Simulated assay, not measured.
Amino acid sequence: MTTTRTRIAVTAVAALVLGGVAVGYTALSAAPSSTVSSGPVTGPKLQVLSNGALSTVSRTDPAGPREVTEQRCDRAYAAGGTISCLRPAGALKAGELAVLDSSLNVVRTVPLTGFPNRTRVSASGRMVGWTLFVDGHSYAANGFSTSTGILDVKTGTLVRNLEEFSVDGGAGADRNFWGVTFTSDDNRFYATMSTGGHRYLVEGDFARRTVKPLADNVECPSLSPDGTRIAYKAAVNGDPQQGWRISVMDLATRTITPLAETRSVDDQPAWLDGNTVAYGMQRADGVNDVWSVPTDGTGTPAVLVPEANSPAPL
């Protein structure tokens, strides 16, 4: 989809965007020294990014001590002993996907071009998905372009862009994909497809290289641990420029439950368990915090991990 003219424009935009990210990382300080543990965090853990550094906190005391590593990522996620890390690898738009094991050893790298935005790992750790902005850097704007890929860590099979997949029922040439989330069979997945002015929840089949639209106004889906529900961001009044409301959809009945978080959230929610999701929110000063909220529409949003983003239960 990208022409030579677009590539030139994208490079200029990326320079500005990545410059802003550098400033953001400076503002997003790592956990204060008083909260950094002198040894490993024990018990159930939550992985987060602290000032871009892979870190872990205790699930029972997420605001307490954290273990900060030297591995740096723009976006990260972990599951099944596999860590996905989107990180810079050179000047301007050059970057890479680094697949790490639970000991932080690099298993595979994939060169990428674009601004890192989303990443997910299947529950088994076998499948890794990611999304980058190729043109633009906001889902609220018009005319942006994304690149979303999937890697089968076990076989090495790599799909660099879901635009290679066929769409059941067809789709326009303007289609973009983002926000992959995997089912337990390591073949099917859900994602967002934008085409013709609509943003659809699609179900994909990795082996068949196909996707099929399921529902309108669903972005950045995240499949529940039991595979029955999708947490996602829904554009207010169907207009992304009005912001997004985190919601949960029952896949069988298509019943939608808006969650108690009424602020606009531009993130892919992460299920902490069957009853709670976590997400990143940026403060006015540019610092991010990880928040959580119940998935049944009750309760009150609360800060889960201060000065952090990219939450993933381990």
Rank of each mutant, 00 (worst) to 15 (best):
2 T>W: 11
4 T>E: 05
6 T>P: 04
10 V>A: 07
13 V>T: 09
14 A>M: 14
15 A>R: 12
16 L>E: 03
21 V>R: 12
23 V>N: 09
26 T>E: 09
27 A>P: 11
27 A>M: 12
28 L>K: 13
32 P>M: 14
33 S>N: 12
36 V>K: 10
39 G>P: 14
40 P>A: 13
42 T>G: 03
44 P>C: 05
45 K>H: 06
45 K>P: 01
46 L>W: 07
47 Q>L: 11
49 L>T: 02
51 N>Y: 12
51 N>L: 12
53 A>R: 13
55 S>D: 07
56 T>Y: 13
63 A>Q: 00
66 R>S: 15
69 T>Q: 10
69 T>A: 03
74 D>Q: 14
74 D>Y: 09
75 R>N: 06
77 Y>N: 04
78 A>L: 07
79 A>F: 06
81 G>L: 02
89 A>G: 00
94 A>F: 08
96 E>I: 05
99 V>M: 04
100 L>G: 02
103 S>K: 13
103 S>Q: 13
110 V>K: 03
110 V>F: 07
111 P>W: 07
111 P>L: 14
112 L>Q: 10
114 G>D: 07
114 G>L: 09
116 P>H: 02
118 R>K: 04
119 T>R: 01
126 R>M: 06
128 V>M: 00
130 W>F: 02
146 T>I: 01
147 S>G: 12
148 T>F: 00
153 V>Q: 01
155 T>P: 06
158 L>R: 06
159 V>S: 04
171 A>Y: 08
172 G>R: 12
176 N>E: 06
176 N>M: 06
177 F>V: 03
180 V>R: 00
190 Y>F: 01
192 T>M: 03
195 T>I: 03
200 Y>T: 02
202 V>C: 00
203 E>H: 02
210 T>L: 09
212 K>R: 14
218 V>N: 03
220 C>I: 09
220 C>S: 11
223 L>R: 03
225 P>W: 04
225 P>M: 05
229 R>T: 06
231 A>V: 04
233 K>M: 15
234 A>T: 10
244 W>R: 07
245 R>K: 13
248 V>R: 03
251 L>A: 01
254 R>H: 10
255 T>C: 14
258 P>C: 10
258 P>N: 00
262 T>S: 08
264 S>L: 11
265 V>G: 09
269 P>N: 07
273 D>N: 08
275 N>T: 08
276 T>F: 01
277 V>G: 02
278 A>D: 08
292 S>P: 05
293 V>E: 11
294 P>K: 11
296 D>V: 03
299 G>C: 05
301 P>L: 09
307 E>P: 06
